[in-house]
Design a protein around this nucleic acid. Structure first.
Lengths: 239, 239
DNA sequence: GTCTATAGTTGGATAGAC
DNA sequence: GTCTATCCAACTATAGAC
């Protein structure tokens, strides 16, 4: 396959739907359309795999418009990710605040701590007003090449991790702190895998019920049960 | 930052260590050196982010040598991934075979099924003879752009999933099959996250013990406890 | 089997008109 | 603010000498 064939074979060069006629040249929401297109293409092809030209074409603009609004391709990526992560981080903090207020000085209920961590990301995923490709953007955040991503990742994670580690420690006072930290990483693994949409990507083998149609609420529920049980599981006394 | 600065700022153009003097021109292991370099650079920068030139330079060869041995950049990626996944798939099957033989017709012990699934990937990760960057290659397999990766991913997963789903069903006879399938995805999420090396990538906040020095055996042990408890957790009767 | 040299594209970024 | 036109560096892949 030649390079030209490979590129044209790749789909998704379709422009972002701008509800109705192919009207162009809206003054301010060009920025928004660029973010939508970038989100979809970065998620589909990766940062280096999605050219700025492809992104701007899908957004119905030009390369220079993107440079005008964002300054560089990297900056566009950062803006794309921040648009999604900011509301999640804030919603998590808000839910945790409410939870701690309600509990007063008492131990926090584990399942509710987990829900405060997990529900916001599902909520963001399901928002219909913005492109619905939040999906793999979260997974990319975890595995895309380092340039700025590594720093972004740590910042995003760091802003939430400390609070949730403390909350988990309050929910499970007898659990060793290192085990809490390790189990939180397991939880993050589950979250990323599900958020990234891998449930839809891996068809179950013949004879097994499909997972791709499962409502978010069912998946979220089961995640909480699964992870709560894991967190409560005592360390094995060395056999 | 200019493009030139960004590129030169990026490290890891160092050649693969060929134990001792910078001896070149070994007849056959050029292929091996190319795979080592490709593994490291694809893992660090992603498939599109790591140019063939960078890979061949790190391997101490030329672009055309890579084409001679593999035919294309994509084929090199596939070979890189297969070299790691093949032994894991085979080891998993072997451990499961042994387990089923030992159990006869009886129920399989859950923890041992999980160990058959998880230990081989840790073993591969720890092999010193090949470059030690198995790490993020597994994560890439799950989130890198589609060209051939999507197909590869399904093939690799499919060859193991059916057998493990059956084994889990034999270990937990009362568990609904859809719940087993869903929980297996959670397990995969944990596995990918840990294998990808994210434990080392996310420094724990101040006041929390670091995870980066943890021996593989400790992590594997805790993973099995965590996931086993999750799998055993009963579905919540809808509140 | 490995090299040098080169072909032919495509990439991000910018200048300057409007 | 958005466009067209252009710069030039970097890419994959191949041809052909050795």
């Amino acid at each position: 396959m030649t390079e030209a064939e490979r590129v044209t074979a790749s789909p998704a060069a379709a422009p972002i739907a701008t509800d109705g006629a192919p009207r162009r040249r809206n003054p301010e929401d060009t920025k928004e359309r660029l973010l939508d297109a970038a989100e979809r293409l970065f998620a589909d092809r990766g940062f280096e795999g999605a050219s700025l030209r492809a992104v701007t074409q899908a957004a119905g603009t030009s390369v220079s418009a993107a440079h005008y609004h964002f300054g560089s391709k990297e900056a566009l990526l950062v803006a794309t990710i921040r648009r999604r992560t900011e509301p999640v981080i804030k919603a998590r903090a808000a839910q945790l605040d409410a939870l701690e207020r309600r509990a007063g000085g008492a131990a926090l209920p584990l399942e509710e701590v987990l829900e405060a961590f997990l529900r916001p990301i599902f909520a963001e995923r399901a928002r219909p007003d913005r492109g619905d490709d939040f999906r793999r953007i979260a997974a990319r955040l975890f595995s895309d090449p380092p340039p700025i991503i590594a720093a972004l990742k740590r910042e995003v994670f760091g802003r939430t991790a400390a609070r949730f580690l403390d909350a988990l420690a309050r929910a499970l006072p007898d659990k060793p702190r290192q085990e809490i930290a390790l189990d939180l990483q397991f939880l993050v693994g589950v979250m990323v895998h599900v958020t990234a949409g891998h449930l839809e990507d891996f068809p179950t083998p013949d004879g097994w019920p499909s997972l791709s149609g499962l409502p978010d609420e069912v998946v979220l529920d089961r995640m909480i049960q699964f992870v709560a049980a894991g967190l409560r599981a005592p360390a094995r006394s060395h056999s």
